[in-house]
Design a protein around this nucleic acid. Structure first.
Lengths: 134, 134
DNA sequence: TAAAAAAAGGATAATAATGTCTTTTTTATG
DNA sequence: CATAAAAAAGACATTATTATCCTTTTTTTA
């Protein structure tokens, strides 16, 4: 379904949303240990997310990663797409070019509703929603 | 979403359901050309499906692959699970062990309905349904 | 029964994803 | 301003997926 990288990304962001702030930055080392993710791999992922400003980072002593209030409107889908480099939920399940209602693949009509629904579910989750116990 | 291998498998099976029978077997070569799938890779996939009797095959002149009436009750999910070696739709989106209603991951409640629904959609498609224009 | 057709099987190669390690840059602080 | 802490960056290793090629086995049929 999702790649390891994007699962790690979502887990790490969830952790940052719940436990970090500008005054309380988290070290890659600690996040990696808490979530049981290979540290250097997580480091790459967090760097990538910080580069597009989905999360914030600070170098040097007292530095680390954190999420600001202004970053809480990002969706989980945004994160997945950024890390995977593509929107897998938009692609045809059978890899047809231009698969759609009027030019459907063999199973389009049978799965489109649910596939689109799952995409919407990921899109509707904003980082701020992770603060609420669902 | 799905691996290339399982996409190829579903496309090839669809092709077999629509165009083959015990009296009209199809060659890997022809299926590969018609569907634009690398022939040796498709060959492996069809072998695997034939080994578990999801499709039929015959060696020698006049041989090839085909689907019989008795094989039309198989679901698309069966094919995906066989080829991928796991049921990705059953796994937690964030890789939590034993993620469920009472022990949910951070986004379980927000995506479970759609994720389970997509799995059911794949499970509800039987090969015989591919004969009908949906 | 020999030849050819076709799948089955095995070995190998290329690519992408995942994971590890080391060096560099930035920055706070004693 | 020297030191140390931390992310950033880059090089490398491993594994899984995808793809290719070659050989073997089975089977039909001339």
């Amino acid at each position: 379904m999702l790649s390891n990288a994007s699962k790690y990304a979502v887990n790490a962001i969830n952790h940052l949303v719940l436990n970090s702030s500008e005054e309380n930055k988290l070290l890659v080392k600690d996040i990696a240990e808490d979530l049981d993710i290979p540290k250097p791999f997580l480091s790459k992922i967090l760097q990538q997310l910080a580069a597009v400003n989905y999360i914030s980072s600070a170098k040097g002593p007292g530095g680390g990663f954190y999420v600001t209030a202004g970053q809480l409107d990002r969706s989980i889908l945004d994160i997945i797409v950024e890390i995977e480099g593509k929107d897998q939920f938009k692609q045809c399940a059978l890899n047809f070019d231009d698969c759609n209602e009027s030019n459907p693949c063999a199973i389009h009509h049978l799965i489109a509703t649910m596939k689109d629904g799952l995409r919407k579910a990921y899109k509707d989750i904003r980082l701020k929603d992770l603060k609420i116990r669902n």
